[in-house]
Design a protein around this nucleic acid. Structure first.
Lengths: 262, 262
DNA sequence: TTGACACTCGCACGGTGTACCAGCACTATT
DNA sequence: AATAGTGCTGGTACACCGTGCGAGTGTCAA
């Protein structure tokens, strides 16, 4: 990737200055550059392959140089997580029915997080509060308010949806990115699970053994489980809103800054 | 903790054999002992404080001794996770309405996992398939089948519930076990979040700023969000069952080994 | 010319997981 | 009784990690 280093040539000392990363050698490194490189590195090699030394190397810099721009590996990861939240697209169609908008938003968040699926395990241990993450949260809250949620229930509905979406991303990730599942096709994965479950003792785990043979490919399809549960959750939320006097038609209550005109 | 070692006494050599961990010095170490000690250590000090050297020390053994009984730190963690699944209590009241049984089961799984809340981040990166975990899964599947689920939808409903429960445990954990939130009371936590959210720019995040002041203590109460979403999810599931011809009275369909007689 | 400042990075420390292997206490076999 | 095996222990060593420290660089202001 960097200039050839070990190819004998004396390389015209000082003329073509024989360096690795031209773009950096004059300008100082930037926090943004570091975060971007970190995301790229993690996307490419997963969290295992991510270390400060390795990242420095990737940037053509010494490992400890990074500490001028960033307090910690921890802080860097927080920055990475928040930056990755930028990949959640928040354009939603304000003319669509409220429920569809909410479903679409949930799907977009999930899709955005899955764009950097190696980050998924990190959601389990830190609570990001960067501007980009907050922007996403704000958007969800606004939409929930538009639907009629308020006070206690706004918080409860918000947390429930978050639980579900994050949970689905995490569960997906761990099913798809183990060392032995990495890069397998869906059909291969299905066969693998069938084999594993079929090997279980049928007397102790009758339902597990029957599970995969009975379920067709549609049930294994990407997002199928997420979509099913999402619809059930929205069923319940909708019912809750109508029951408790809230309204769910598209454009009734106060706007609450839900970016109706995007 | 161990016997006094450096207190001058010759210690009656060989009579009271002056060792640290009596129970071990004759019998060899056991994998079960190791796993148990690992859980205890993680419960006490979190994942940070857990290393092979530290664990060995805790057992009065050399660090590398553990590798005779266990392949990897990775494998050890898998064993720990599966062992911790034993703390999920699966006694349910077969005479209760189906929906209540399912809710109770979900609550129990969540409660069981939260008994070792330091393990929560690990659910994000590995997919446990030990006997105890499978036992829990089997139980959920059996109950879902009792309710009328089958084929594709059985898998979908199972995955949805799992997503939600695991997600809620993970989100809870990360809200409650950061370095700055550890051991705070609920009221303190609430105040903390209020302060954080209140400090945000109100024009960019109007709904986030209003969120906490509007939500009363009931919305912050432990399990409140979990319970709300669970009920909404079950609303949807129930509706789905009645709509698609399934039945949801308590004791109708085939038993499917749901341990009706506990 | 002299500072001050922004920035880079080599060195070193204390930690990690774990491969390797020499050693121990038994038990079974000769 | 001597020997060989076998189950188990743990010390040493290696490669890697995050990161504090401080000596170095280049640039710009005074």
């Amino acid at each position: 990737m960097t200039g050839s280093r070990s190819d004998g040539k004396p390389a015209r000392l000082g003329w073509w200055p024989e360096v690795r990363d031209r773009s950096r050698d004059r300008q100082p490194l930037t926090r943004d550059q570091i975060v971007a490189a970190a995301i790229k590195l993690i996307d490419a090699e997963g969290l295992e392959g991510f270390s400060m030394r390795r990242l420095g190397q990737e940037l053509g810099a010494g490992a400890t140089t990074l500490y001028w721009h960033v307090k910690d590996k921890d802080q860097l990861i927080d920055l990475v997580l928040d930056e990755s939240a930028l990949d959640v697209r928040l354009d939603d169609d304000a003319s669509a029915p409220w429920r569809d908008r909410l479903a679409g938003l949930a799907r977009e968040i999930r899709a955005g997080l899955k764009r950097h699926h190696h980050l998924a395990p990190l959601y389990g241990s830190r609570i990001p509060a960067g501007p980009n993450t907050l922007r996403v949260m704000e958007h969800v809250l606004a939409l929930l308010r538009t639907g009629g949620y308020d006070g206690d229930k706004l918080l409860l509905a918000f947390a429930s949806l978050t639980n579900y979406v994050i949970g689905s991303v995490i569960m997906d990730n761990r099913a798809l990115s183990g060392p032995e599942t990495e890069g397998k096709s869906l059909e291969e994965l299905r066969r693998m699970y069938v084999a594993i479950l079929a090997s279980l003792p049928a007397d102790a785990f009758p339902n597990l053994v029957r599970l995969m043979p009975e379920a067709g490919p549609a049930a294994i399809a990407e997002d199928a489980d997420f979509e099913f549960g999402l619809q059930r959750l929205l069923d319940g939320i909708e019912a809750d809103l109508t029951h408790s006097g809230g309204v769910q038609p598209a454009r009734s209550t106060r706007q609450c800054d839900a970016r109706e005109h995007g």
